[in-house]
Design a protein around this nucleic acid. Structure first.
Lengths: 369, 369
DNA sequence: CGTTTCCATGGAAACGATTCCACGAAGACA
DNA sequence: TGTCTTCGTGGAATCGTTTCCATGGAAACG
């Protein structure tokens, strides 16, 4: 007995031992083994044909392809990824799907990835660090080939794991201080400077700024740009004119409330992203203030329907399409072993009705009425 | 030589043969084997601890947990799913992420799934059958535990594979004729009937309808409801008053153009979804028509910022949150082996400024000017 | 015609986890 | 004290694929 090799006891898995009962047949998933059997070739050959290896005879190819089609065979992505270490998929983690900017970004990234043969797994951090970490963990576990992320928080948590594991990563829209990862971002400076200049030219001296959180790079950048511009054009630098929101609609509403309660309220408002602008508009309406006449309003982010408002909303515009496209291109470079340079896209003021009227004669300040 | 068993040549994979060079150490992924080795237990025990099996000693548990933490171990989801046939993940395939309705749906589905311990892989069919099929294939390949889909097209292609493989599936917002799958949909009838009644009461007799495509269930349902309502209230059933769009913004614009070119143009418009309403509004603005005065407008789908327009847009509202929540609940039931009943959610007219003025005296019809 | 090269093919190892099974130690019971 | 459970543990099979290696026949070369 001792001379019989161990593998003797390995249970055979021939077809006749399969639990083929009379019903529920369709429940047992069909594998490459079934395809090979039907095609009359070995699994190895079947695999070669299905993954397009050149070392196959036309005959085998035809048989296998026919068998696969007949059985409606779908390769098990898990098994495939387990053996060959790439999954032909990327992760996209946005900070808030309901923000139209990120919805558009999701759309362009996905289309660009699809064109390159990758599928996109989309995660939504919902502007919350725990959820970001949770999704990042899942994406790591699923061994995506790379990740495009608009990060929040600092370089701790799963972002750190990402870097340590050298998982191909590209930051989009936002960056994380001290983390050296290629990124596609927007140069807020130009657009914000143009906006402030434009408002100053219309006679505004007190501009209220509804800022994003300082824990997010775009929040910091835009606030810094605003601060610089206000100083440059000699406008009021009253710190009360700045309200710190969280990039979500409710905080835009709260910001308007707070700013309008000031003893010397602003005559113009600048919102650092579109959801906060939406929140701001809602409250301005409710308070009976006419945008573009009683108060000027400009928003960062160009959302399609902002132009449909009456008056149409002036915006600081930057290209989502380009951002998404470039992010995918860069990620593919990183996956390919390259180290692409970070890209900074331009921003630009688009003047519409909401900011075009000159400053009205002290409309908001009760003490001058 | 011949007596040496084959397995002799099996390469050993002891640790000392690992390609540990002085650098790039972090590139080699850490597996459960590493964790087990560091903890001084077998892989089997490590696995048991990590997947929370009760049959483990406190001592082993402590060691393994510590080792896993120290190595920052992340289980390989592929391998895990290969063995145990569930992946703790669901797929969500929406027809268009840029449609705020579906963005919101994505958000609620994702949050509901997360709460139940599932991650959501989101796909975007972009209202195109090929892309829907492509994503469905990927989701099948990745062996998600279930799929929530707002389907388009008929029951052919990958939808069929889904059913045949008995992959837990729930339709959301839309259904597919002849395919027996639990669904969460909206009862368009009530809301549309209310809208038509409301317009009729204001004196409108010719209502232009910008319809969704008849290849999509909601397109058909809403059109049928409109047809019935128009007949019921004795309004014009002129077929020219119906424009068939594709649920995307551009076709809303085209619809308005077409309807306003009629010899007898409508005095009120009803758009079957929000992107088409946006396209419609853009063209109405461009043509200098005042919504709510020169022409009434009502849209299906309640989008947050529709209330911010001036005049605010009357809408037929239905609850996305509930739809998403119920879809996930139903999917979990199907995964658990149940067969939940389909759910139909109510819709309801919300009257705002865009439809409140009485019909203006022949404002649009050139022949009466 | 004999030797070498080429190439399609099949067998089996490998990927990283889970889980069945057997085993030995310890506690319970008579 | 001896047998019977109970329980933690490790070895090994297993999931479905890719890929290395050996093989054998055909083609090409001298």
């Amino acid at each position: 007995m001792e001379t019989i090799p161990r593998r003797q006891c390995k249970r055979t898995h021939e077809y006749d031992t399969y639990p083929y009962e009379h019903e529920e047949v369709s429940m047992v998933a069909i594998t490459i083994k079934d395809v090979a059997a039907l095609a009359g070739v070995s699994v190895a050959t079947a695999s070669r044909v299905l993954s397009g290896s050149p070392a196959t005879s036309p005959e085998a190819r035809a048989n296998v392809v026919a068998a696969a089609a007949q059985l409606d065979y779908r390769p098990n992505a898990q098994a495939r990824a387990l053996r060959s270490t790439h999954t032909e998929s990327i992760g996209l983690l946005v900070s808030d799907v309901r923000n139209p900017f990120f919805a558009d970004l999701a759309h362009t990234v996905e289309q660009a990835a699809l064109a390159a043969g990758y599928v996109t797994l989309l995660g939504n951090a919902n502007e919350r660090k725990e959820q970001q970490d949770r999704y990042l963990d899942t994406l790591i576990s699923r061994r995506v080939d790379g990740i495009v992320v608009s990060p929040l928080g600092d370089g701790s948590g799963s972002i750190r794991s990402l870097i340590q594991r050298k998982i191909p990563t590209v930051f989009v829209d936002r960056t994380v201080d001290g983390v050296d990862v290629p990124s596609v971002t927007t140069d807020s400076e130009t657009g914000i400077r143009q906006a402030v200049e434009h408002l100053a030219a219309a006679g505004h001296t007190r501009i209220g700024y509804i800022s994003g959180p300082q824990s997010i790079s775009t929040g910091r950048d835009r606030f810094a740009a605003f601060t610089r511009a206000v100083a440059e054009f000699g406008l009021s630098q009253d710190p009360e004119l700045v309200y710190f929101g969280d990039f979500q609609a409710a905080s835009g509403s709260a910001g308007v409330h707070a700013l309008l309660e000031l003893r010397q309220p602003p005559t113009a408002l600048l919102a650092a992203d579109s959801p906060m602008a939406v929140g701001a508009i809602a409250i301005l309406h409710r308070r009976g203030l006419r945008i573009g006449r009683d108060v000027a309003l400009i928003a960062f982010d160009d959302i399609e329907w902002f132009a449909l408002l009456d008056p149409a909303l002036s915006v600081i515009s930057h290209s989502v399409e380009e951002m998404g496209r470039i992010a995918v291109k860069m990620l593919l470079e990183v996956i390919g072993g390259g180290t692409p340079e970070s890209v900074v896209l331009p921003s630009e003021l688009i003047i519409r009705g909401s900011s075009s009227a000159p400053v009205s004669p002290t409309p908001l300040s009760p003490e001058f009425v």
